[in-house]
Amino acid sequence: MATESTVPPTPAALASGSGSAPAHEIPGLHVPSRSVRGELRAIRAVWRRELIRFSRDRLRILTSLVQPFLFLFVLGTGLSTLVSSSTHGVSFRTFIYPGVLCMAVMFTAMFSAASIVWDREFGFLREMMVAPVRRSSIVLGKCFGGATVAGFQGVIVMAIGPLVGVHYTLGLALEIFALQLLLAFSITAFGMMAAARVTQMQSFMALMQMAMMPMFFLSGALFPVNKLPAWLGVLNRIDPLTYAVDPMRRAVFAHLDIAPLARRALDPGVTWWGWHVPGLLEAAVVAILGLVMLAVAIAEFSSVE
């Protein structure tokens, strides 16, 4: 972020800064030419706007908690009577917790990205587009803002972990936090990319719904990813969300005191042609996808008039 240090003000800027007699100031001197510092300020300003808007929207914070609660406590509790024989003593709620956390982050990030569609609808996008900064700064600011908001939502869902048998150590908390922030960023980038093309809110929401639901169900959020029928296994490996859920589940299970048999059954890990994909590589997959989509979003917003 930009440092707070001040540049030496030009005499003209000082003169007008005194607030007196704007009549004979030299117009145009207030806006310096483009610089890295200027771009960083723009990014931060756009980012901050997202946070201000989010903090005003208490209802949204509350409503977006409903879904994770339903999954964890209603679906999780209901299904655990059915699956208890095959979970080797591990609570089903604990098992689906990483997936539910990912889902909560994913939906919040999607709503954050949708805000750029509103911005266009209500005209504010033009105010940002005509500013003398790079479009990439606007998109980055929006993206960081969305990721921060979704990450904050993720922290709230993280906080209910102890209720479903996930007891954090500092290390685990940091690991989960970093992973969910990464996911938040990538999903926001995905949303921004879509929002560059889809200008209508209804279509945008429909599109997102269409993308999110399969991503969630295919990701292994609700089932272990080994021993799947071939077609489902392939779809699961293609689904980007798989690579967010899996390392998160690995982190959670690493801190559970359970039999190796249970670990192998519930946390088999993602394999590519029999090779176990390391957690770091999985995170890299999410990050790279996010960066690629961000690049596409920037390119698209830079080319529109």
């Binding site: 800027a13 007008s16 207030h30 310096p32 483009r34 003398p132």
Partner: peptide, 15 residues
């Protein structure tokens, strides 16, 4: 927000 986007020198923004 506008002042930040236009990169106005910080000390001139408030006045």
């Amino acid at each position: 927000l506008h002042a930040e986007l236009y990169g106005m020198p910080r000390e001139t923004i408030a006045p």
